[in-house]
Simulated scan of single mutants.
Amino acid sequence: MVNRLPASLWSKPRWIKPNGLTAPTRTSDPPPYPQEPQPVTRNPTEPSDEDYGPSRTQQRREALAVLTLATQLLELPASRLARLALPDDVRHEIDVTRRITAHIARKRQLAFLAKVMRRHGDEAFASVRAELGENREKHRQENAAMHRLEATRDRLLGEDETALAELIAQHPQIDRQHLRSLIRQARVERDGNKPPRAYREIFRLLRELPESGPGSDVA
């Protein structure tokens, strides 16, 4: 009698792991390799990013610059403001804003003033910005010169005579006797806690001296 294998053993054998579990069979092929992204060509009829105008960040920056300029115009004296080339409606709104004293109302009017200025564009205020920039530079130079004169005066009031000798060497035409008298009087005023009349007179005298170049004052 011929021994026949059971029908269950005729099928394709499966791999059996040591723990008794069968290994899963692969049911699909691996995914294909990723392809290189294809360049996107823009339709010439579609508008580019530049065609949409300035971004919100740029618009906010420009609005803040106009608001800053409006604030500077409000702080100017009337005599200086009259010399600036401003549009009539802008000048009118500046006068209206100056007459407002309430904080909230003034802030609202300032925003409206900046809005009126934006209607004219930056070209209308190019000369105004240039003049204000020159005035700021001039003001900075004047402050620096004043600080140098104050430093020179403080050195003259010291016990060291070097500062006085340097000042006389730079300005031989100075009245030495008068300057020495002012220095002695200023020291007395300082030590006696008296009004600084001579102290101020020394500053006025130094300010009237001709400048021989940047940083020529004794510092």
Rank of each mutant, 00 (worst) to 15 (best):
L64C: 02
V40D: 06
E208N: 12
L21P: 00
Q59E: 10
E50F: 09
Q185K: 13
L9N: 02
P6K: 05
P54M: 14
L182W: 01
K107I: 00
L167F: 04
Y199N: 14
M1K: 03
P13L: 10
A23M: 09
R119T: 11
G20V: 04
M1W: 02
S216W: 11
R91G: 09
R61P: 01
L206G: 11
P34W: 11
L67M: 06
R98P: 02
A130R: 15
G192T: 09
D217S: 04
L84V: 08
R180T: 14
E161Q: 08
A105F: 05
V128C: 13
A7E: 14
P44S: 11
A145D: 11
I202A: 04
D51Y: 02
L179E: 10
P6Q: 06
L73P: 03
G133S: 15
A144C: 00
E134N: 09
L164A: 13
R119G: 15
P34E: 12
H147V: 13
T22K: 04
L64G: 10
R190A: 14
T57S: 13
E46N: 06
A163P: 01
I104P: 03
R190I: 01
D95N: 10
A219T: 08
L67H: 14
P30N: 06
P195W: 01
K107F: 03
P37K: 12
R140I: 02
D154L: 08
I183E: 11
T45M: 08
R60T: 14
V2E: 11
I168D: 01
R119N: 12
Q59I: 07
P18C: 03
E50M: 11
L84G: 07
K107H: 08
D160R: 03
R80A: 06
R83F: 00
F203N: 02
A124W: 06
Q35N: 08
A23D: 06
L76E: 07
A198L: 02
L9Y: 04
L206Y: 10
E208Y: 01
P172I: 09
V218A: 07
E208M: 09
Q185S: 14
V116D: 01
A198N: 07
P34H: 10
N3E: 12
K115A: 11
K17T: 08
Q72N: 05
E46S: 12
P87I: 05
A186F: 06
S48Y: 05
D191C: 00
A105D: 15
R153G: 01
Q170D: 03
R140D: 03
Q141L: 15
V116L: 15
E62K: 10
V40N: 04
R26G: 00
G121F: 08
D160F: 01
P195I: 03
R61D: 12
P47M: 04
P18K: 08
L110F: 00
L5S: 08
N143F: 03
R148T: 12
L21M: 13
A63P: 00
A82S: 05
T27L: 14
P47H: 06
S181M: 10
L182D: 11
P31S: 03
F203I: 14
Q173C: 00
P47D: 07
P214Y: 07
D88G: 04
F125K: 10
